[in-house]
Structure formats: C-alpha cells, structure tokens
Nucleic acid binder design. Structure first.
Length: 536
RNA sequence: GCCCUCGUAGCUCAGGGGAUAGAGCAUCGGCCUCCGAAGCCGUGUGCGCAGGUUCGAAUCCUGCCGAGGGCGCCA
C-alpha cells in the first residue's frame, strides 16, 4: 500500500473518531511545494471547519493529536500550520519504500492509475482536409491527440484513434479545378488552391478533364502524403473514416429521416433545415442545400450517430482547431437531437499556433509545412515542442529561434538525461561491476538531498499521469519529465554513482535509484511519443 | 453588433481555490586531473484594470480594457 493511501485512510479514520462528517471531494492530501510544510499535507481541517461549526485551527489541532497518537509507519511528526493545514513529516524510509515500488512495478505497470474503467473512447483528431499538406498546427494537435490517447490508454480507457477524411464536397471540386487549371497552364482561380504542390500534382495527372476525377486524384495523393507525414511523428490512427463513404452508405439520409420523425425538419427557401434551435443551438441549420447536396453538418451528424449508436463508443472526444469552434454549437445540438447524452461528446478546442509574422492559409499556400519543421528539428523535438503547452493557450512559435538554438528545445535536455543513464550502465559493465538484487541493496543509504528529491519526483508520477488523463492535458507529463530530468542532472553532478571514492554499497543503492529514474523517463517519454535514446 | 477562447517575468510558457506564484530562454558571473559540460551553481523583475464570493483568489463570478477566433445553402 502506498504511503499516500495509508495517510488518507488515517485522516478519514481520525475525522470519524472525532465525529466530524467529511466532504470527500474537498479534502485533499498533497505534497506541499515548500519543504518546511512537510512531506504530505492535508486541508481537511479547513474544509470541515464550517460544517463542524468550529475554528479551523482548533479542528486541525484535534486532528493532528489523533493522527500523532495513531503512530503510523514512517510518520515522525504531525503539525498544524498556517490557517489550519495538518502537515506530515516522514522519515526518509518512505521514499526508499516508494523507490522499491517503482522498481517492482517497472515501466509496464508503474503509474497506471485505473480511472477509465474500460470505457470505450474514440478520439478524433487532425482530420485535415486532403487539399494540401499538413501545417504546423496539424502537427500540434496531432501530437496532442495521440499523446492524449496514450495517456488515457495507460489509465484504463479503451482508446481508438480516428481521422475523418473530408473527401467530398465543394472543396474537392475546387481542388480539381485548381489542378486542371494548372495543367492547362492557366492561373488558378482566386479562391482556389494556389500552393505549389498543385502544380506538382498537375504534372503527374494523366486523367480526363473531369473536375471530380481530377479532384479525387489530387485528394488521394495528398492524403497519402498526409499519412506519411504523420508516420514520421509516430502518429497512427486505427481508422481513416471517409466522409464520401458515409454519404454513399445512406446513413446521412437515414439520419435526416430520424430528425424528420422527431419533427425537427422543415423546408424553407428551397432547402431542408434542421430546427436546431429546439435543442440549444443559436440558429437553425441547413441539412440539404437548394442544389440537392447535403451539407457538411448533415454528414458530420450522421458520422457522430455512427460513432455513438452504430459503433457504440461510450465517449467521443473531438479535437478541433479554434477556427472550427463555430461548428461546436450545431454539432452538440444535433447530437442531442439524436438522443445522445451530450456529455458523452467532448469537444476540445486547440488554440491556434502562430508563427512569428505569418498568417497561415491553405488556399493561398502561405503556411509552414509540418514536413519542413520535422526536417529542421527532427520528429522528437517537434513532438515535445507541441506537447510543451496547454492547447488552451495560443502559442507563438519562433521557428528561426528553434532552428538556430537547440537549447530552446527541451527535448535534448530530457533525452540527455536518459542517455546519461544508459551511459552509466555501459560504464558499469566496462568496469565489471555486478549489480546486486534490490532486496539486498541498502536503499537507506540514499539520503543526499539530490537523491531524496529524485525519489519524491518519482512518487508524483502516478498522480501526474492520472491528472493528465482526467484533464485531457498531456502537457502535464511534459512538465513532469522536464522536472525529473532537471533533478537527475543535478544528482548526476553532485552524486557520483561509479567512483573509487563512493563505497560499493552506495554505488549499488544509486544504481537502483538511477534505474528508477530511467523507468520514470521511459514511461513519460513513451506517453509523449518521444524516443528515449541510449546515446545521442 | 453578438458568441467563444485567452491576458502571469524582457521573450516563450507552467501553475487554474491553499501557505512566501515557478521554469526555460535572454543578461551577467562562477564550475571539467573524476560516470557524457547537450550539464551544474548563482544573479531580479510579474498575475491587464476595478469590484464581488470565500477562512483563503493568479485561480471562481460581474464589468471594463486588450488580443485571437467564430457568426455561410464553405469545410
């Protein structure tokens, strides 16, 4: 049983013996930032003071007294501090025990909090239109979606990744027109696709002058290109779902029919409308246009019906760029109208990635290609950089700076820590030093501040992974791994593992500590989709 | 005009009810007879503004100011 668990149980028992009712959600047991606040701290007294009708510090005093009397393992002091916090001071042995748990669990099982309960969740992301190469923003949200999938999988969700291919409609026709114009050596219409890749494709195209055929040719070629780029970042999908296929399968018509049966469809101005205002939208939306084409929304609603009612996902997470947030209200409304609990559809909006002094637009061809960024920085750096920040925050990227100074990019810092660990092990074998089993190692020798700090850091990983999953915030894993790497570099500087001056027993203990760190690094880097190199 | 998101250090960003708000970069200064200096150590400035809720607000609420995005029978 973890120390955290034992303390939490102790607090609950202590409050019960004091006959104080608990509001569980509010009671927290955390590791305080400041060392003088102990190893663990609870706000329980602050939270229950009101309902108990007593002063927080008074409750805290009673609570501390009971906890002190319980004399739990490793607990050397229970103190009241500040407005009514109860702080636990523990013997270092709790950290040595924690290190044992890390080693025993290993890369596979450590930090695998069971939170998802086997819930089947689909994450749909990137879903870039096959009308041009991926840009930096696609890579950003692609890395996010993939890492979120990894984090949630680790926490017990059954995750499927999906790319929705917008392979039909006006934009594909426009792409076909642009291609044909290029082939004829004419200028591309102003609203068409101007990018150079269209010229390239026009040279390869040997088909007819039919716009649909040309458009299909171009979009298929572009989609292959998109997949290749995503492969470079190790972003892989379980399914590539075609918008054209859902229209051809009749599911769009079926979906519209369902709306009709529910009295949510009417005709006006020659088009067929969804009365989405009935279910929370700000205005009604067109489902079938005057020319007979179904709208993107109609297809998207059929697609979501398929996700929930045909393929029976318990939860769907759609990841859109902030420029698509206009479609959120109607999508949510439409899904609700299909009788699907709207909480089951989560839409995460990623703020846009700005490049210094440039505005990105696919049609004008003025955007930074994801491929060129990977060429410059490498896949690992691109992924880690994408996962540095919350997607709620618009980020501004200075590509020149990133390219020129690798120090701007923390990927090297983190990978270097892993490479140094591998290097220690190589050196150990060179010197013919045999490892002893952890059961025989004297972990109690690990008392240096650097060593203790590393173990504290490792203790936090399960909570960090769990928060990253619950909050859909994989960047929390990035923050943690940077912290761990920093602590490791400090340790490496101050504490030699292999040296004439270090007693053999301490070397053995430190080898196990280093292995624990390696496990932590490997778990975190894997969640982020970044390689953990043996050497660099 | 209406709606959404966001304003934290010179720059890029963490922290999103908890105790004295952090990191990297940039600046300046130290550290390699010793497991990899892609490293370590030191150096100071900040929560857009004003109210409110709370024992406690950078965090929640309201208003204002500023930035970005959205408001199509495009996707």
């Amino acid at each position: 049983m973890t120390t955290e668990r034992r303390l939490a149980d102790g607090i609950v028992a202590a409050l019960a013996s004091l006959q104080i009712p608990i509001e569980l959600q509010e009671v927290q047991l955390v590791r305080p930032v400041r060392p003088e606040h102990g190893d663990w701290s609870t706000n329980a007294a602050l939270v229950v003071a009101k309902s108990a009708g007593r002063a927080p510090r008074e409750v805290a005093g009673d609570l501390a007294a009971v906890l002190q009397a319980a004399s739990m393992d490793d607990v050397v002091a229970v103190e009241v501090a500040g407005p009514g916090f109860v702080n636990f001071r523990l013997a270092n042995s709790w950290l040595h025990q924690a290190l044992r748990e890390v080693i025993e669990a290993g890369t596979k099982s450590y930090a695998t909090p069971e939170l998802g309960g086997g819930e089947r969740v689909q994450i749909e992301f990137v879903s870039a239109n096959p009308t041009g190469p991926l840009h930096v923003g696609n890579g950003w949200l692609g890395s996010y979606g993939d890492a979120l999938g990894r984090v949630m999988s680790r926490c017990g969700w059954k995750v499927k990744r999906e790319f929705y291919v917008n392979d039909t409609g006006g934009q594909i026709r426009l792409l076909g027109e642009s291609l044909l114009a290029r082939r004829r050596g004419e200028v591309v219409p102003e609203e068409g696709y101007q990018g150079e890749y269209v010229t390239q494709l026009a040279q390869d195209y040997e088909g007819s002058d039919d716009i649909v055929e040309a458009g299909r040719f171009a979009s298929e070629a572009i989609l292959r290109n998109i997949r290749a780029t995503l492969d470079r970042l190790d972003i892989r999908f379980d399914d590539w779902y075609s918008q054209a296929s859902i229209e051809e399968s009749g599911q769009v018509a079926e979906t519209i029919e369902i709306f009709r049966q529910r009295g949510l469809v009417y005709e006006a101005d020659g088009a067929i409308w969804l009365r989405s205002t009935e279910v929370g939208d700000s205005r009604d939306r067109v489902l079938i246009r005057t020319n007979g084409d179904v709208t993107y929304l109609a297809g998207d609603l059929a697609y979501h019906r398929d996700k929930f009612l045909v393929r029976k996902f318990d939860r769907v997470i759609d990841i859109f760029g902030a420029d698509h947030h206009g479609q959120v209200a109607s999508l949510k409304a439409g899904v609700a109208a299909l009788g699907i609990e709207s909480d089951k559809l989560e839409i995460r909006l990623g703020q846009l990635v700005n490049i210094v002094g440039r505005r990105m637009s696919k049609r004008s061809g003025n955007f930074i290609k994801l491929d060129s960024v990977i060429d410059e920085m490498g896949a690992d750096a691109t992924r880690l950089l994408s996962l540095l920040n919350s997607i709620d925050q618009a980020t501004t990227l200075d590509l020149e700076l990133v390219k020129r100074r690798s120090m701007e990019n923390p990927v090297f810092y983190v990978q270097y820590a892993h490479a140094r660990i591998a290097s220690i092990d190589r050196k150990r074998r060179e010197r013919g030093i045999e490892r002893i089993p952890i059961s025989e190692a004297k972990l109690g020798l690990l008392v240096h501040d650097r060593e203790l700090e590393l173990m504290r850091c490792l203790v936090d990983l399960p909570r960090v992974v769990g928060e990253a999953a619950k909050e859909r915030a994989p960047h929390k894993v990035t923050n943690w791994v940077r912290l761990l790497a920093g602590e490791f570099h400090g340790f490496y500087h101050d504490c030699r593992v292999l040296s004439e001056e270090v007693p053999p027993e301490l070397t053995q203990a430190r080898l196990w500590l280093v292995e624990g760190v390696q496990i932590g690094l490997a778990i975190a880097l894997d969640l982020l989709g970044v390689r953990a190199p043996e050497a660099m």
